[in-house]
Amino acid sequence: MTSPLIQKIYTDGACSGNPGAGGWGVVVYFENGTVQELGGGSPETTNNRMEMQAAIAALKFFKDSGQSKVIALYTDSEYVKNGITKWLPGWKKKGWKTSAGKPVLNQDLWEQLDELDSPKVEWRYVRGHSGDPGNERCDVIARAFSQGKMPQLKMPDLQVSLTLIPNAAEVVMSETPSSIDAIEVVPREVRVEQLRNLVDMLHMADEIASKGYLISSSELADLMDINANAVTSRGDHWVWRNWVVSRVRREGNQILWQLERVD
């Protein structure tokens, strides 16, 4: 049977704490309308590394497909897009040094991306949390893995495949969207540590609410572990977990928010 042609691939990464527990997600769209999803997590990483790991997984998937037709690869990370399309040649000429003479961060992953990149891949930037279905789904997958959860992942057939990524303590999982139960592959100690991080975050939110502290959009985004644009796009009054989040006022170029416990 001929494998379906890949049309486009979306990638995204997430991190709780940055550095902290992270996850990444990939959504592959085929020309026949089917979808395949990949994801994984790492107990101690950064958001940029998860964005890069997602792109690496996408490029590996495309390479393994043997497809010769050009595809579009979407990322909401300008760091990844600019790095692979603009900065890499200069870094390599300078011996993996920046223009300031400092070592390039995440060189190990940049080298993998450089090796896997292909003229058949068109790199495209998509704004995160802007309503693009592929990007939003990748975000859901990445955040689930960053929280030690195992989301149900779609694939075109009934197989379940697990692939361990060497030296990264990460798991790639593809699964049908049907009633197959999620397979527990994240080590218990990793899940416990991620739970501790979550509890610390919730305690912090409680203290901010009880003390009546006002926090900026970027600070609120860090607390919630989301993009700052996703905070302002939600409106002036909305619910997050156990708190009502309200826009209070603007100070200079900053919007200030208040949390109020609702339970």
Results as ranks from 00 to 15, higher is better:
211 K>N: 10
185 V>T: 01
109 L>C: 09
148 G>L: 01
125 Y>D: 02
212 G>Y: 09
126 V>I: 15
114 D>W: 12
186 V>F: 00
206 D>Y: 13
168 A>Q: 15
155 M>E: 09
161 S>K: 10
132 D>N: 15
151 P>G: 02
122 E>M: 07
181 D>K: 06
116 L>T: 07
178 S>Q: 15
99 S>I: 14
210 S>I: 13
204 M>L: 13
175 E>Q: 06
172 V>G: 00
194 Q>M: 14
169 A>V: 09
194 Q>R: 10
201 M>P: 01
224 M>G: 06
156 P>G: 05
228 A>G: 03
208 I>H: 14
109 L>E: 14
116 L>K: 08
214 L>T: 04
106 N>G: 13
170 E>P: 03
98 T>W: 02
173 M>P: 00
121 V>T: 08
123 W>T: 10
223 L>N: 05
202 L>H: 08
121 V>A: 09
103 P>C: 09
117 D>A: 10
180 I>K: 07
125 Y>S: 04
144 A>T: 00
107 Q>Y: 03
146 S>I: 03
162 L>D: 01
191 R>H: 09
204 M>K: 14
119 P>Q: 05
111 E>P: 05
209 A>P: 11
151 P>C: 06
193 E>L: 13
127 R>F: 06
174 S>R: 02
186 V>Q: 04
218 S>R: 15
122 E>K: 05
132 D>C: 00
164 L>S: 10
152 Q>C: 02
192 V>L: 08
111 E>R: 08
179 S>R: 08
131 G>W: 08
151 P>Q: 01
91 W>P: 12
154 K>H: 13
229 N>V: 14
199 V>S: 09
129 H>V: 12
115 E>W: 11
224 M>I: 13
167 N>R: 12
163 T>P: 00
157 D>K: 10
180 I>W: 04
136 E>V: 08
171 V>I: 11
176 T>V: 12
